[in-house]
């Protein structure tokens, strides 16, 4: 049901990770996401697993909520894995051969590693969103994009739109849910008929949403103007982003870890060209 979607899925707690600066968290998360694609060996995966467990423990978020994010896209993950199994050709005899499908040991290993990487990717990003409020994340994006102002990129407006969108999603979901129910009550049918009929069936949902969106935008503009909004000029921020000892400690550890990963696997791949990405 729409109304139960908790977007951004921030999990309030007072942990080491929660107290870290959002910018550092964002950068380190990106580093992690790139890093796991370098990991090849079982030892490497063991290290990454240990790393994630430590981070989750430090973040004091229940394992359940972390896994929930994986559950959401499990279908996508499995599909990727299956495709990988089918399309990876090995050197020796196929493990299993049926019609045009051949499954090799290499395929299974490769697919399971890929599955693990993607799962860790999702877990890594969900730790970021679980421990960082959407507001902080927006601020972090704004702050990290600041250099783009040089090329006249509207950084402030971009961040504001991001933040407004985030704050409107829950009520937009509710609104959509309510409209769907109301039209269903008038006999609207969204589940049967051909493609054209189904597409047409959404008009009675989309139009009210659109009209509501305009009304909302208008009222929001009035509310913002009334509260002295004038664009980015001379704006200050309540939330001070300050780097603390936690950020320093975490940065050093994570950077050293991934520097090691990059060195070890990068060296290995030096002779294998681009192939390291795949094995």
């Amino acid at each position: 049901m729409f109304r139960d979607v908790t977007f951004g899925q921030y999990y309030p707690a007072d942990s080491f990770v929660h107290k870290m600066d959002a910018r550092i968290k964002l950068v380190l998360s990106l580093l992690f996401m790139v890093g796991i694609f370098f990991v090849v060996s079982y030892v490497g995966f063991a290290v990454i697993t240990l790393y994630l467990l430590v981070v989750i423990a430090l973040a004091r978020v229940p394992l359940k909520s972390v896994l929930k994010s994986v559950k959401g896209i499990i279908f996508l993950l499995l599909l990727t894995a299956i495709i990988n199994v089918f399309f990876t050709k090995g050197a020796g005899e196929p493990l299993l051969s049926w019609w045009k499908i051949e499954i090799y040991t290499e395929g299974l290993i490769f697919a399971s590693k890929m599955l693990l990487r993607l799962t860790y990717l999702v877990i890594g990003s969900s730790i970021l969103t679980l421990t960082t409020t959407p507001v902080d994340l927006t601020h972090a994006v704004e702050s990290l994009l600041k250099p783009l102002r040089v090329i006249k990129f509207p950084v402030h407006e971009f961040a504001l739109i991001m933040s407004l969108t985030l704050s409107f999603i829950p009520s937009l979901m509710e609104e959509t849910d309510r409209i769907i129910r109301a039209q269903k009550a008038r006999g609207a049918d969204f589940d049967t008929g051909g493609l054209v009929k189904r597409a047409k069936a959404f008009v009675p949902i989309l139009i009210p949403l659109l009209v509501g969106g305009f009304r909302r935008a208008d009222e929001l503009a009035n509310a913002m103007n009334s509260r002295c909004y004038e664009g980015a000029t001379k704006r200050t921020r309540m939330r001070k982003m300050r780097l603390g000892w936690r950020d320093a400690v975490a940065s050093v550890i994570v950077v050293v870890l991934f520097a090691a990963i990059f060195t070890v696997y990068g060296m290995q791949s030096a002779w294998g060209g681009i192939i390291w990405l795949y094995y």
């Binding site: 609104e175 309510r178 109301a182 039209q183 609207a188 009675p204 139009i207 009210p208 009209v211 509501g212």
Partner: peptide, 30 residues
């Protein structure tokens, strides 16, 4: 649903058709 008419809160927010007649006929058409 034809026998049990349901009017939601702020039902005017669910209007969508070009004309009043079309909107009122929506249920009947369904």
């Amino acid at each position: 649903r034809g026998e049990v008419g349901m009017v939601f809160q702020y039902p005017e927010y669910q209007l969508f058709a070009d004309t009043v007649l079309q909107d009122v006929s929506f249920g009947l058409k369904n």
